[in-house]
Write a protein that binds this DNA or RNA. Structure first.
Lengths: 145, 145
DNA sequence: TTAAATTCGGACTTTATTATCCTAAATCTT
DNA sequence: AAGATTTAGGATAATAAAGTCCGAATTTAA
């Protein structure tokens, strides 16, 4: 009802990578897919988007894989991840699907929906990966069940 | 990013039907599809769900069509419409796709997401069809552009 | 009472999303 | 340098969502 499969995987993967990177470990796509219970090849595609979006770094070859620069972890939030994967539809698409919906020419739900969307985006921006990875490390949450 | 096509059509159709019903007019699926710019046959399916969900009334045969009981219009909100069409995933599905995600065994985003979801659902429940239909009647909004 | 108009509901088709497969390119190890 | 490991990226396949078609049932009107 809200995130695409790609974003679900992307967020979970970022949390896992952040957690491992904090311990100084690089992880490959097989490890990521196992950790978040996702299809390997599809997960690889999502990782490419996170690399392009500057969320994670990749290294090819033996002992390669993905990591997050520790200093960057606090600076990465869920909104950035979703945008890297799904683009900026979340910000701009009309909730009722009108091609050109704006405050000047709005759909009937426009005004009320704006505040729902702002609230949602603000929360996504206020939720960083460090916070979620810490919660996972402390066993206060799980990536699989 | 948020509503299914079905819900988009359902909400727009409900607004249109409410507007027409307030003037004492019943409308058929061709008129609805034209008013909201949706595929006719698919719209018919959505209308069936709104009928089953007690949002609108249907009458078969010549001069038949769909209408909303005027006294009911103020009592119908967007949350009810979405539930009639998409079921209750909006309330219960884990934002990160875990099969069993709960406050006792949460995904990493669970706690923060709960408040986003509550805010959203509250807004949907606080937005009734009467309000949106009035906005349309006053030409403060459009169903098509 | 027959014909026309309309919703109902099942089966089917199309399109978009999700997922897989395969080869190339890069890097590490020996 | 050769072979193993790993990401990159394009092409293809499977599944789910969106959309279509058609006959049956119901109602109105002539």
């Amino acid at each position: 009802m809200f995130l695409t499969k790609g974003s679900e995987y992307g967020i979970k993967a970022a949390i896992f990578i952040a957690s491992k990177s904090a311990e100084g470990h690089r992880v490959n796509v097989n490890e990521i897919a196992a950790a978040i219970n996702s299809p390997i090849a599809y997960t690889a595609k999502i990782m490419q988007k996170l690399v392009k979006g500057n969320i994670i770094e990749s290294t090819r070859g033996a002992q390669g894989g993905f990591e997050m620069i520790p200093e960057k972890i606090k600076g990465i939030n869920l909104f950035q991840i979703i945008k890297s994967i799904d683009g900026n539809e979340i910000e701009k698409k009309c909730v009722l699907g009108l091609d050109r919906c704006s405050s000047a020419n709005p759909c009937p739900f426009h005004h009320k929906y704006i505040s729902i969307r702002e609230n949602t985006i603000t929360s996504l921006k206020n939720t960083n990966i460090d916070e979620l990875a810490t919660r996972l490390d402390n066993k206060f949450s799980v990536l699989i069940n």
